[in-house]
Design a protein around this nucleic acid. Sequence first.
DNA 1: GATGTTAGTTAGGGTGCCCTAACGTTAGGT
DNA 2: ACCTAACGTTAGGGCACCCTAACTAACATC
Lengths: 171, 171
Amino acid sequence: MLSGKHTHDRDLTPSQEHYLRAIWELRSKRGYARLADLGRALEVTPATLSVGLRPLEARGLVAHDDQRFLLLTPAGERLAREVHHRYVVLRSFLHDVLRVPEATAEHEACLIEHDVSGTTTERIVDFLKLLEQDRELGDLFRARFDAFHRSCGQTRACTDCGLACLTPPPR
Amino acid sequence: MLSGKHTHDRDLTPSQEHYLRAIWELRSKRGYARLADLGRALEVTPATLSVGLRPLEARGLVAHDDQRFLLLTPAGERLAREVHHRYVVLRSFLHDVLRVPEATAEHEACLIEHDVSGTTTERIVDFLKLLEQDRELGDLFRARFDAFHRSCGQTRACTDCGLACLTPPPR
DNA sequence: GATGTTAGTTAGGGTGCCCTAACGTTAGGT
DNA sequence: ACCTAACGTTAGGGCACCCTAACTAACATC
């Protein structure tokens, strides 16, 4: 039924995935990434990263320069790009489709990126591509969703719109 | 940029939310919930729950019978229903719209339910309601999404469909 | 060459969340 | 009355993740 334990069934922990993505994004943007840069980007102390990157180095995903600039091995880069891909897809869906405010979308995408499977990610990609490629459907959807949101969603007042299970709990 | 730390900005931890939801669901389904029942449902040992429920009791969200049957206070039930609502909405979206297999949808909804904001949840509710109430849009969407999925999504082969940022990373 | 900044490390501490092992209490089955 | 099973608790341990404090190493600047 619930089958909990909050286990992510990837072989990297959420933080490790986050570290990989941040290294990749920093290197893409500035060309380099040192431990301190990473710390500033992730709002985490260098001490945390110094220890936290160790398993990634041990597994041959992250390495460093003679000057201690961080490097991604091919395997590390592949994983980093996967995480980044999940992040971008989620952020785009939340912001561009659901119209969640940008800051919220980015924040939640950061959290959710570690939980969604490849399958789910690809379904969302399909969804985004469909809306983009099929102008008729895309325009119709955006117009109707917009109108619907204005008439119903904003106030959360429609407690009995018809969908019993989806009715928000009473305040 | 990233602003990480994986902090959920609710005042309950993910596990605590999970416990509340499970109590509520067990009580809805069987009329009662003991600690051991909860443990079986959540796949967690009684020892974990015995300690883990303490903060919820201290905060007046969970209580127990003279027979040690677990009870939700009004405040606890309100929170439990909120978590359940997020869960149901996510599961429905993943399964009914994105067509993610049911087991996957349930598993991921369990994880994501602790990360999505109320705003995002309500946007998804709007989305689901819109598809249900607007037959024209709903039917069109389902037909096109289905066709699109068959032609493009299944193999993940469409690496250069046009959406640069959404292209899955190379294998 | 002393000074101060920046980078990275180690040591020690704390929280969340889970486990096993050992123990008491309560309720049936015979 | 006795044994067993099921329930719940405590004690002790472990992992993931973060912190502060106290170093060392490299560096520019005066």
